[in-house]
Design a protein around this nucleic acid. Structure first.
Lengths: 230, 230
DNA sequence: TTAAAAAGTGTTTTTTTTACACTTATATAA
DNA sequence: TTATATAAGTGTAAAAAAAACACTTTTTAA
């Protein structure tokens, strides 16, 4: 390798694209924006932006998510870096995909309207520009794997939720029906949920107990290692 | 977002660094190079290079691995993109880490000598430049997870191997002792190994049966889903 | 008052994982 | 030649985890 390894090498644009998952009305959703700029004006895409000189990728992803949702402390994870030479027709661009989980009730609705953004159920999402469909696919696969190794789902739910909501969430992530009793037994065996004396009567006449997530017990559990196969 | 989104954005150097795993004499090893160029001349680092305009990341990683090992068809996977602003003191550089699994017997020994490269056991590896230690850590964690979800180990072994070699390999990846009988029972339950009539007498007087890996059955098994918890 | 809709609750069966010890084959040393 | 040392090879029983399974409760609205 020559000693001037940094000279005459190719510099490249770095984009950060975010797959933003939410959960609403029993279905897993993603937040997409309708582009009001070229290229691909009018088409749907992931929310993205470019990496700046003075920030690292996590910071860029946080900035981009804040711009769209108004939220700062959300679950986020780097997914994969996409690098096909002609993935962006305008210029050679690498894109580092991040995925985020947010409580759909908490985001800033005005902000997403300003960006012509919209929530879509996974099965009803439109075709996306560039390689964004692949990014979403990969994010779903990763989310599925994560859901089996830790109780990631809480990030997607409001602070108080019912067992049934939690189960529906897992069903939509794993894309299969789960047994009610087995699910509750498993969740309770972790001891990371606290049952409140309140009930939620939105979805049933009888009302369902609300639960919250016990962060302290959860962190203990993380240390000893979860087996979250459901 | 402005319409001139591609103008005045920052272009950045992209490096590709490879964590190359091998398995020899019962221990998991990594291949490191002693830098004969600045910065950090004389220190140990991962094998790396820069991404070129006309190639994608996978192609760059394959090129870099070929330069060092002379091998082309090796197991390789993108790991993570490292982006700390000052990770490289010379210039702002992102590094996309890849990890590779190779059969240590197959590589080109002359090539690695030309690069002043050397195999190190994981526990005896020297300190590395930049954030390369972190990369190795992450690669080991990924390898551990992979080892539990599919029988990845075959990539690291010669075409014919003994059960004991396979077990030793898993023991060194998972970093714990495994029960001989349970291991064999589990592996055999997959039906992806073929026992040959040959024996290997290197490690024992009695000799141990050699096995090969049945690629066809393996692929069938992949489709129906592995449970490789050992 | 009754029908409908969702919540809540335990036990049994099956599958998977773990624990565990002796015999066999052969080269080498006495 | 015999004894010894070394690693290979082999199966079963106990424990743990996962999966299957159905009825009762509460309430509202017809």
């Amino acid at each position: 390798m020559p000693s001037n390894i940094y000279s005459n090498t190719d510099k490249i644009l770095i984009a950060v694209d975010c797959i933003i998952f939410g959960f609403d009305k029993g279905a897993l959703k993603i937040l997409l924006i309708k582009r009001d700029f070229e290229p691909e004006l009018g088409k749907w895409s992931l929310m993205g932006g470019f990496l700046k000189e003075e920030e690292n990728l996590d910071e860029a992803a946080i900035r981009i998510l804040y711009d769209l949702t108004g939220l700062r402390t959300i679950y986020m994870e780097q997914l994969y870096t996409f690098s096909k030479v002609d993935r962006d027709p305008v210029a050679r661009t690498l894109s580092v995909a991040y995925y985020a989980l947010i409580d759909i009730a908490m985001h800033d609705k005005e902000l997403i309207q300003n960006h012509s953004a919209q929530w879509f159920s996974l099965d009803k999402a439109p075709d996306l520009i560039f390689d964004h469909n692949k990014m979403v696919e990969k994010a779903i696969a990763r989310l599925k794997r994560r859901a089996l190794s830790k109780p990631i789902g809480f990030e997607l739910l409001p602070p108080k939720f019912t067992m049934r909501q939690l189960q529906k969430l897992y069903e939509s992530i794993l894309n299969k029906k789960l047994d009610k009793r087995n699910f509750i037994n498993k969740i309770n065996s972790f001891g990371i949920l606290v049952r409140l004396d309140e009930k939620d009567t939105n979805a049933s006449k009888k009302g369902a107990y609300l639960y919250t997530f016990d962060k302290v017990k959860y962190d203990e559990k993380v240390l000893e290692g979860f087996n979250f196969k459901i």
